[in-house]
């Protein structure tokens, strides 16, 4: 079983579902899970901040996406105190022609996830972020394990 999470999309599910998103570049797959209830959810957000950019649906931005994802998990029976997080993505492809690589959208998206998870008191258990490579992400909500596939590298699990 696998449920696809598209760009600017959020899906939550109970075990034994696998949540998948394909071809992540500068976007982030933000995953939250409650290990006791064996439920989890994934947000595929594009941009770091809805307060400086606001033309799109809330699923597109890190801050509003995290609130939505958390709310959906609580509705499904999750406990705010038990929530754990993992993130993947945030690549800086084409870095050699970025005016300032430190400010790439990939890096800003990673930074946003770190800041927001701290603010929401959700521990970040593991991450596979940055670099210049694309990722496909498979999230097993039963175990919280995340399998990540690449084009030119062996897959990893975090």
């Amino acid at each position: 079983m696998a449920l696809t999470v598209r760009i600017s999309d959020i899906q939550v599910a109970k075990a034994p579902e696998i949540l998948v998103t394909y071809g992540l570049g500068s976007c982030i797959a933000l995953m939250l899970y409650d290990p006791l209830e064996q439920i989890g959810g994934m947000s595929h957000y594009m941009l770091p901040d809805s307060t400086t950019m606001s033309r799109r649906r809330p699923e597109a931005y890190a801050d509003t996406a995290l609130v939505l994802l958390k709310t959906k998990l609580l509705h499904l029976g999750g406990s705010p105190a038990r929530l754990r997080a993992k993130i993947a993505g945030g690549a800086s492809m084409f870095a050699d022609i970025f005016p300032n690589p430190a400010l790439s959208m990939g890096n800003r998206n990673i930074e946003a996830a770190h800041t927001l998870l701290r603010e929401h008191n959700i521990p970040l258990m593991a991450e596979d972020v940055g670099g210049i490579i694309g990722r496909s992400v498979y999230f097993d909500v039963a175990t919280g394990k995340v399998r990540i596939r690449y084009v030119s590298r062996e897959e990893t699990t975090i």
Binding site: Y22, G23, L24, G25, L47, R55, S92, M93, I132, V151
Partner: peptide, 27 residues
Amino acid sequence: PSVPSMVLDMSGAVLTTAYLGFGEPQD
């Protein structure tokens, strides 16, 4: 055009980074 930058990777990752990597894009 500026100097080019080339990658070999998943189409989704390449396309979204080209659109999103530099600021909020068009619809």
